[in-house]
Nucleic acid binder design. Structure first.
Length: 575
RNA sequence: GCGUCGGUAGCUCAAUUGGAUAGAGUUCCUGACUUCGAAUCAGGCGGUUGGGGGUUCGAGUCCCUCCCGACGCACCA
């Protein structure tokens, strides 16, 4: 077991000894924010003491007296009003590194309580090109799914694509009247988007056309073969374009069940809402009111429009119902932008009333907007939304220019491949590194910079490590140094202690659904490595130092690569 | 109007159940390359965390209030 886990376990036991009814899950050990205090600390006792009105300092002293201190703890002390600080000895650090070298772990452990998660993300709309607005959901959701999986949870990813709804009336009308077959062949989604925009503006000008669009929609919903056929074709065209984007991004879904998949469930749900008086008719629509809910009191939710059609709240309820029946998740995570907060509050509240016994946890993981450098929503120069495919192309092109300039040893094909990894990595990292809830400013120069908290900087650190091994044709797995691993310099210790924290960080990522913790950690790790690299020669060092340092490099490289992989970012061997 | 979320160094951003002296990058200044990759590293300048009040041993974080901004507020999703 990893040191912090053992410490945490023993600390919990000691707390239970002092306070039998304490909430042990709240007792946590984390790395010290300042090395002067120690390596690990716990602030949990102060939080525990407060509601119980006991002196936190005294509680800390009692707990530390009851603590079965692991033999590898060098010092454990109470500080200030009740901090517990622990310092670990070099032995346990080295033994932990050795077990990592042997492949027993990579500084994290899988969870003791595996849970099943459904992660709902990306969700593009059929007949619209994926644009920059989809990237954050896609990247965040993918990274969370990867991190949950590596920690041993069961994860089902489901792309809830928008393949049904009122936009298809206009699309059908446009398809029948103004389809450009040539354009459809070269850029299907672009052509569909053009048809939609064209019909939309024509409808604004001619109300009679709007009736036509509605009629097409009704025919589709009634199962008209021609309209269904066209709809199916639009769906397939869209899917193949989505797939090419996902392939580029390295994102995969276990399921892609669009809104239309749930059509048959809608009417029964509305009926049940009505029968159980969860919803009632208001202004011709079927509406759920939240009179006893202060926050939602002023925001009733429609489950059926006055024209009899269900809307997205109903579809989301049906989707949730299906997911619970099919996969029995412990938790369903929705990754969408922050503008949908009200919708999900309503949805979750309706669900609680509808399935009052369900233990499932529902989480809305929302994120802010991507802004242009002018602080306004990110658009092209002409004011259009930025298509995702174009964005990725530009990222690769810009990265290629940098790679060509910096490393001319690589062949053209190698440069292109490295540029692909660096460009896509930069875009993804720029999305993941800021706190997801804040808006962030999209800047090519910042995300592709080789200094600062960027993907290229982390990839560079990895490439430097790989370069050491390549230089002397050393194998990827050197094994534990014959005389056992030992460390001597402050830089070695600082780097290795950072390695030990990888697992703590991964746990924080999944508990708060925030991959940016991992970004910050990897940046720290790369920084610690850079300092080590400056001050501690590896290949030039004498044995046994040389073997020790090679081992440290190897583990650092592995953690960097693994961490980047959890962010969906590749690590080139050279760049 | 009501609600949600923001406001942290000139700029772009961090800061893990409230935790210890609020950290990075960038800009500007200074230093380190006969290099295990300088695509790097070290040092310096830079702060009343929007204003004010409160709770607390302790507040960027919680509560109240005001200012500024983004977004949302029943028949789009």
């Amino acid at each position: 077991m990893l040191p912090h886990r053992i410490l945490e376990e023993r600390l919990r036991a000691a707390v239970i000894h002092c306070i039998p009814d304490a909430e042990v899950d709240q007792i946590v050990v984390r790395s010290c924010p300042d090395v002067r205090f120690g390596d690990y600390q716990s602030t949990s006792l102060m939080a525990l003491a407060k509601p119980r009105k006991i002196n936190p300092r005294k509680l800390a002293e009692d707990v530390i007296r009851a603590l079965d201190v692991p033999e590898w703890i060098e010092s454990s002390e109470v500080a200030g009003p009740g901090f517990l600080n622990f310092r670990i000895g070099p032995e346990v650090i080295c033994r932990t590194l050795e077990s990592a070298i042997r492949g027993e772990h990579l500084f994290f452990e899988t969870t003791k309580n595996p849970r099943t998660f459904v992660v709902d993300f990306s969700s593009p709309n059929v007949a619209k090109p994926m644009h920059v607005g989809h990237i954050r959901s896609t990247i965040l959701g993918d990274s969370l799914a990867r991190t949950l999986r590596i920690l041993g949870h069961t994860v089902i990813t489901d792309n809830h694509i928008g393949d049904w709804g009122t936009q298809f009336g206009k699309l059908l009308l446009g398809w029948k009247s103004g389809l450009d077959l040539q354009a459809l062949r070269t850029d299907a989604l672009g052509e569909l988007e053009r048809l939609y925009k064209q019909t939309n503006s024509r409808c604004d000008a001619e109300p009679a056309l709007l009736e036509g669009a509605r009629a097409e929609l009704v025919k589709l919903q009634d199962g008209d073969p021609e309209n269904l056929g066209i709809w199916q074709e639009m769906l397939e065209l869209s899917r193949s374009q989505f797939d090419s984007i996902y392939q580029r991004l390295g994102v995969r879904f276990d399921h892609t069940l669009g809104e239309s998949f749930y059509n048959s469930r809608l009417k029964p749900i509305v009926a049940e809402m009505k029968d159980r008086s969860l919803a009632r008719v208001s202004e011709g629509a079927m509406v759920v009111f939240f009179d006893d809910h202060p926050e939602l009191k002023a925001h009733p939710a429609l489950v059926q429009k006055s024209d009899g059609a269900a809307n997205y709240t109903t579809t989301d309820l049906a989707t949730l119902q299906y997911r619970l029946e099919t996969w029995h998740p412990d938790e369903v995570v929705y990754v969408t932008d922050g503008r949908q907060q009200l919708h999900f509050k309503q949805l979750f509240e309706i669900f609680r009333r509808w399935k009052s016994g369900s233990p499932v946890k529902l989480a809305h993981v929302w994120f802010g907007a991507i802004l242009g450098e002018d602080g306004k929503p990110f658009k092209t120069r002409s004011g259009d939304t930025v298509k995702l495919a174009d964005l990725l192309d530009e990222a690769e092109a810009r990265a290629l220019r940098m790679v060509a300039e910096k490393n001319s040893d690589l062949t053209d094909a190698e440069q292109k491949e490295v540029a692909r990894m660096v460009g896509l990595g930069a875009v993804k990292y720029a999305d993941l590194a800021p706190n997801r809830q804040s808006d962030y400013v999209f800047s090519w120069d910042k995300m592709l910079a080789l200094n600062g908290n960027t993907a290229p900087y982390l990839q560079y650190a990895h490439a430097r490590i790989r370069s050491i091994f390549r230089k002397q044709n050393l194998p990827d797995d050197l094994g534990v140094p014959p005389q056992g691993l030992s460390l001597s310099t402050p830089e070695e210790f600082a780097l290795c202690k950072t390695l030990l924290n990888f697992g703590l960080v991964l746990e924080a990522v999944v508990s708060d659904y925030r991959p940016n913790y991992l970004c910050n950690y990897l940046y720290d790790l790369a920084g610690a490595f850079a300092q080590f690299y400056e001050r501690c020669p590896v290949l030039k060092a004498e044995e046994p130092e040389r073997s020790n340092r090679l081992a440290v490099c190897q583990l650092t490289g592995r953690v960097l690569k693994c961490g980047l992989e959890l962010l969906g970012i590749e690590s080139p061997e050279r760049m």
